[in-house]
Amino acid sequence: MPRKKSTGSKGSGDAEVAIAEPIEGLPEGLTTGDLVESYTQMLLVRTMDERIWALNRQGKVPIAASCQGHEAAQLGSLLAAQKDGRCFLFPYYRDLGLKMAAGLTPTQVMLSFMGKEGEPYSNARQFPMQGADLDHNIIQISNVVGAGLTQAVGYALACRMQDDDTVVLTYFGDGASSQGEAHEAMNFAGVHRVPVIFICENNHYAISVPQHRQMATDDLASRAQGYGFPGFTVDGMDLIRCYEATREAITHARTQGPVLLEMQVERLMPHTTDDDHLRYRTQEELDAAHQRDPVSNFGAELIARGIITPENSDAIKAEALKAVNEATDAAESAPLPDPSTMWDRVYSE
């Protein structure tokens, strides 16, 4: 008996959808309602991502790192963590999707990119969405990639010392996996069986340096073996597969020890708004990557499965655009931080 449910999520408004019962092929715990919710989130993230790029080209947002191409990996893994309810996250600078879907409003995200008063992660002392969002169980201190992995391991260790069964998910790119500290973190985690999941969003480029110059293997996940724990390669363009892999990893991490998940994704945009990726990638390569766009492909899959209609999809997109427009206006009229606050909180109070 189909039920009607509003698919409202933050900023998406109402787009009524007929929900079928759980269908075959979906992993345990995942409903079609979750799929529609995820798709809604993806569209909101994608709309925000495109908007920030446009604002940068207007000179209003100094810097942005796009997550286009990474959405399925970020939102799929996040969904597993949210459903588990006892996870903590150490994302990296490209995790816009993850940080938004974790619970920020579009306005909060926009405040972050415009460096305005009230910015949630650092009150605009830092680059967008860097600092801490403890309301949503997130810490990301710096851009020195790889440094977060060791911090994540320490956090997970402390949880265990407190008899707390929190699992920590730490995200990083293929480039960061070369940092010595990535090695040091995984090594320690393996020895001490720390409840941490190492999630590598492998888009095969570290700015311009391709994977074959970053490491001597095609199989990043295989490194886990050297640290004594399992590693898995996951199709990072498939949200359901990412959800499933993460869900199983959480169980493993909580009871047995670390897991390495290599989620293979495409980086559809340049490294940041300051990069020109045509200096090192061909247009043909980029066109092929765009064919694998996780957002449009996920939408097509939901439509093909009959879970939503094309009109539903358009309605969700329109809601997303409206939310992002409102967020843009709200953030633009928000004040800049008072200069006298520059001195605050250099030390803890």
Binding site: P62, I63, T272, D274, D275
Partner: peptide, 16 residues
């Protein structure tokens, strides 16, 4: 000694 150029963006925050 040279001089400071005006009215151009020096570099972006993360490169350029």
């Amino acid at each position: 000694t040279g001089y400071l150029v005006k009215n151009i963006n020096p570099v972006g925050p993360t490169g350029g």
